[in-house]
Design a protein around this nucleic acid. Structure first.
Length: 732
DNA sequence: CTGGCGGTTCTTTTT
DNA sequence: GAACCGCCAG
C-alpha cells in the first residue's frame, strides 16, 4: 500500500518524527512547529505503514477541544473514523475505564462525577457537620490541598504525618472527605485519575489486558502531565508497549496545578531507548518575534534546549508602548486595531492577551465605546452556570433521590419555603440515622418532626421530584423533552424571569440552550458503559466545558488570558500589562521556580503572534480599587533590544516626571528616554548599593523633587522604601 | 425566610 | 471595584 501521502507536505524533521520507528519517542516540538499535525500524521502512519489496528492505539490530550480536533483531523487524513481507537482526555479515558470496570475499581455502579463547585460545596458541608472552623481551614484551601494530594497520587492515609495543627487538620479533613465521597459514590476530577491508576495497579490481569491491547500510546502537551497522569501512562505502556510523547518544556505553564515539568525532562530516563526528535522550524511567526522569544526563554535554566527558526524573513520589529495608565494603554491598542481593521484585517485575527482576567475590563469598556465586536475566551463555562447546574441537579435528583448534593442544591430553588432551619434539621437527621437527606425528609413528614408549614413544603417538594422521576423514565421521551419538562415543573423559568436586570434573561436563554443541547445529544449505544442516555449526558456535562459562547462565528477581537491562548495563533497580538508585580505576578516571587514559569508564559504569549506583536504596559494602573506604579516587566529587558522598537503615538504631553521614564535596563534608541533624564540618576531596574542594607534592585518610585522615594528590593534585607534625597544610594 | 448591609478578599484553569 | 460571605433586621 502506498503510504507516502502521509509524508507529503511535511518537512524533513517532521517526517522523521512521523515515520519514527515503533519505539518510545519524544518529540520536542517548539511553538508553531506543527505539533498537532505531526501527531495526527504519526497516527495515520502507524495505522498504514506499520499496520497497527486503530483498536491498538490510544491518543491522550488535556482538553476536550483538542481531543475533538485530533479525532476529526485523523478522520480527514485517513478518510474514515478510526474505529476502536481510544481518543480522549486523561479524565475522559479514565472515566471510561472506570465505567467499564466499576466493580473492580470498588465503585458504585451509578457513581457520579463532581466538578470543582460540587467539591467545594461538599467540603463546606463536611466542615459544618464536623464543626470545623472554616476561618482556620478555608474550604477553598481544603479543596486545593486535597486536589494537590490526589495529583501526587496520595490518599489521606499516605499524607505524611505532621505536628503542626493546621496540616493535621487538613489531613483529617481529607479523611472525612474520602469517607463522604465513598459513601455518596462521588468522584472528583483527581479521583478519576487516581482511581483509574489504582484499578490497573491492583488488578494484574486487567492491566495485562490493556497493556496488550494498546500497542502504542500517544500523548499531546506532555509537559503538562502531573504525577498521577504520568504514573498512569507508565504503567499502561509497560514493557511491551511504546509511547510517543509530544511536548515543549518551554511551554509548561501549569505547574501551579500539579503539572511536573520534570516528566518531560526525565522522559528519557523512565522510558527505554527513547528516540528524541526536535522540531525547531517555526511556520508561524516572523524572525523578529522568534528572536525575541528565543532570547527571553534563554534566561531560564532548566531547559532541554531548543532554538526556533524560520525561513520566512524577519518581519517588523516588536513594538513596545508605555501607556501612562491603563486607560491610555487600552486607547492605544484600540487605535492600532482600528488601523489594521481599516486595512482589511478581520477582527478575529487580532488577539489581546493579559495575565489575569481582571485586566480585561478596561479594554472591554474601550471596545464597547468604539463599537468593536469582541469575544472573551474562557470565562464561565456553560455547564458551570448556576441555572444550568440547578437544572442538572433536578435531573440528578430524579435519577437518584439519595443524591444529597443535588438535593441541597435545589431543595429551595426556586424558594419554596424550605429555609436554613428546615434544611438543618434534615441534615441532622440524615447524619444521626446514617441515611440520605431524602430519607430524612420522608421521616420528618411521617413523624411530624417539623411544624406543619415546613412539613407541607417538604412534602410538596418530594412529590415534585417523584413526578420528575416518573417523567425521566418514559422511554419514548427525548432528552430535550425531558429537560423541557423538568425545567417547567420546577418553575425555573418564571423564577429567573423575576430576577432584575439582564441577568435573568440570560439565564432563561441558557436554560433553553440546555434543552437544545440535550435534544442534540446523541447517545450511541456503543457506549455500553452507560446505562442510560441521561446518565451519559450528565457525565458529559461535568467533563465537557461546553463552548460558552454562541456567537463564535461572529468576526470579533479575541480577548483571553495567556493561559487560554496556548495552542492558538493570531496575525496581530497585543501582550498587555507587561509590568512587574502583574507579569510576572507578584505571587510568583516567593518560590524560585515560579518566575521561570512566568517566563514560559511570556514565551507562550510572544509566540502566539504571526506577523506583528505589540507589548504594552502602563506606568500607573488602577487595579483592585487602588492605584499602583509598577515598573516595566523584567521580561521586556530580557528581549534582545534589536527586536523591539518603542512607539509614541501622540506628541508627548508634558507630564510630571518624578523619575525618568522607567524604560529598559539598557539604553534604548528612544529619543524620549534621553530627553527626560534631566536630574535624577537612578533608574528603575538599576542595581544600587546602600551603605547599610547592601545591594538591591530599584523596583518602584513615587513623588518628585526632594520628596522622591524609591522602593529597593535588597538582596538580603527585602524591599524598602527610601527617600532618595537622604539615602546614600550608589548606582552600580 | 428573605433581603439588605458591611467587612473582607482578590493569579493563572482543565477536567 | 466588585464579588462573595456572614450577620442582622424585618
Amino acid at each position: 500500500m502506498d503510504v507516502s501521502f502521509i509524508l507529503d507536505d511535511l518537512n524533513d524533521k517532521q517526517r522523521d518524527a512521523v515515520a519514527a520507528p515503533l519505539q518510545n519517542t519524544l518529540i520536542l516540538a517548539g511553538a508553531g512547529s506543527g505539533k498537532t499535525r505531526v501527531l495526527v500524521h504519526r497516527i495515520a502512519w502507524l495505522m498504514n505503514a506499520y499496520e497497527i489496528s486503530p483498536y491498538s492505539l490510544m491518543a491522550v490530550t488535556f482538553t476536550n477541544k483538542s481531543a475533538k480536533e485530533m479525532q476529526s483531523r485523523i478522520e480527514q487524513l485517513v478518510g474514515v473514523p478510526p474505529q476502536g481507537m481510544w481518543v480522549g482526555t486523561f479524565h475522559g479515558l479514565a472515566h471510561r475505564l472506570l465505567r467499564a470496570h466499576w466493580r473492580d475499581a470498588g465503585l458504585k455502579e451509578n457513581f457520579q462525577i463532581m466538578d470543582s463547585d460540587d467539591q467545594l460545596r461538599l467540603v463546606k458541608r463536611i466542615m459544618k457537620a464536623f464543626n470545623i472552623d472554616d476561618t482556620r481551614w478555608p474550604p477553598k484551601q481544603v479543596c486545593w490541598f486535597i486536589n494537590a494530594q490526589k495529583d501526587e497520587g496520595r490518599r489521606a492515609a499516605h499524607v505524611p504525618d505532621s505536628h503542626d495543627p493546621f496540616s493535621k487538620g487538613m489531613k483529617e479533613l481529607y479523611f472525612h472527605y474520602e469517607e463522604a465521597t465513598e459513601q455518596g459514590g462521588l468522584l472528583d476530577f483527581g479521583e478519576l485519575l487516581l482511581r483509574a491508576h489504582e484499578l490497573l495497579l491492583g488488578n494484574p490481569p486487567l492491566l495485562k489486558h490493556y497493556q496488550e491491547r494498546f500497542k502504542h500510546v500517544l500523548v499531546d502537551e506532555f509537559q503538562d502531565t502531573n504525577s498521577i497522569q504520568y504514573a498512569w501512562l507508565r504503567i499502561l505502556v509497560g514493557q511491551e508497549g511504546s509511547i510517543t510523547a509530544v511536548g515543549d518544556d518551554d511551554q509548561s505553564i501549569y505547574g501551579w496545578r500539579g503539572a511536573k515539568i520534570e516528566n518531560i525532562h526525565n522522559f528519557t530516563k523512565h522510558f527505554t531507548e527513547v528516540n528524541t526528535i526536535r522540531l525547531e522550524q517555526n511556520y508561524r511567526s516572523t524572525g523578529h518575534i522568534l528572536k525575541a522569544a528565543n532570547g527571553l526563554i534563554s534566561n531560564n535554566e532548566d531547559r532541554l534546549g531548543k532554538e526556533l527558526w524560520t525561513d520566512s524573513g524577519s518581519g517588523e520589529p516588536i513594538s513596545l508602548y508605555a501607556g501612562f495608565n491603563e486607560q491610555d494603554e487600552a486607547r492605544f491598542i484600540i487605535e492600532i486595531i482600528k488601523k489594521w481593521r481599516d486595512k482589511g484585517t478581520d477582527l478575529k485575527e487580532i488577539a489581546i492577551l493579559y495575565r489575569s482576567n481582571a485586566q480585561s475590563r478596561v479594554v472591554e469598556e474601550c471596545l464597547v465605546r468604539e463599537q468593536i465586536a469582541y469575544r472573551i475566551y474562557g470565562g464561565h463555562r456553560f455547564y458551570d452556570r448556576l441555572e444550568i447546574k440547578n437544572a442538572l441537579a433536578y435531573a440528578r435528583l430524579a435519577l437518584d433521590p439519595n443524591d444529597d448534593g443535588a438535593m441541597e442544591r435545589v431543595i429551595n430553588v426556586p424558594p419554596r419555603g424550605i429555609g436554613e432551619r428546615s434544611i438543618g434539621t434534615l441534615r441532622e437527621i440524615a447524619r444521626d440515622q446514617g441515611f440520605s437527606m431524602w430519607k430524612a425528609a420522608v421521616t420528618i413528614i411521617e413523624q411530624g418532626l417539623l411544624p406543619a408549614r415546613a412539613s407541607n413544603a417538604i412534602r410538596s417538594f418530594l412529590s415534585l421530584i417523584e413526578g420528575m422521576s416518573v417523567c425521566i423514565q418514559q422511554p419514548d421521551l427525548g432528552l430535550g423533552d425531558v429537560f423541557e419538562q423538568l425545567i417547567q415543573e420546577a418553575g425555573l423559568i418564571p423564577f429567573h424571569e423575576k430576577e432584575k436586570g439582564e441577568k435573568g434573561e440570560a439565564r432563561v436563554e441558557n436554560l433553553k440552550e440546555l434543552v437544545s443541547a440535550a435534544s442534540g445529544f446523541n447517545w450511541s449505544s456503543e457506549d455500553e458503559e452507560f446505562s442510560s442516555p441521561l446518565m451519559a449526558f450528565l457525565d458529559k456535562a461535568v467533563l465537557d466545558a461546553g463552548e460558552a459562547q454562541a456567537d463564535e462565528y461572529q468576526d470579533s477581537i479575541q480577548l483571553m488570558t495567556l493561559h487560554a491562548a496556548k495552542g492558538l495563533e493570531f496575525p496581530l497580538v497585543f501582550l498587555t500589562g507587561v509590568e512587574e508585580n502583574l507579569f510576572p505576578s507578584k505571587m510568583s516571587f516567593e518560590e524560585p521556580g515560579r518566575i521561570e514559569e512566568e517566563r514560559r508564559l511570556c514565551y507562550v504569549g510572544i509566540t502566539r503572534a504571526m506577523e506583528k506583536l505589540y507589548i504594552t504596559y502602563a506606568e500607573s494602573r488602577r487595579l483592585y480599587g487602588s492605584e499602583s506604579f509598577n515598573s516595566p516587566s523584567r521580561f521586556i529587558s530580557e528581549i534582545p533590544t534589536d527586536c523591539i522598537e518603542e512607539v509614541r503615538l501622540r506628541s508627548q504631553v508634558s507630564r510630571p516626571v518624578s523619575m525618568q521614564r522607567p524604560a529598559l535596563n539598557r539604553p534604548m534608541n528612544s529619543s524620549l528616554s534621553s530627553l527626560q533624564q534631566p536630574t535624577v540618576s537612578i533608574n528603575m531596574g538599576d542595581k544600587v548599593k546602600h551603605p547599610v542594607f547592601g545591594e538591591g534592585l530599584v523596583i518602584n518610585s513615587e513623588g518628585q523633587g526632594a520628596q522622591t522615594r524609591v522602593q529597593v528590593n535588597f538582596d538580603d534585607e527585602g524591599s524598602k522604601w527610601l527617600v532618595l534625597a537622604f539615602a546614600k544610594l550608589e548606582v552600580l
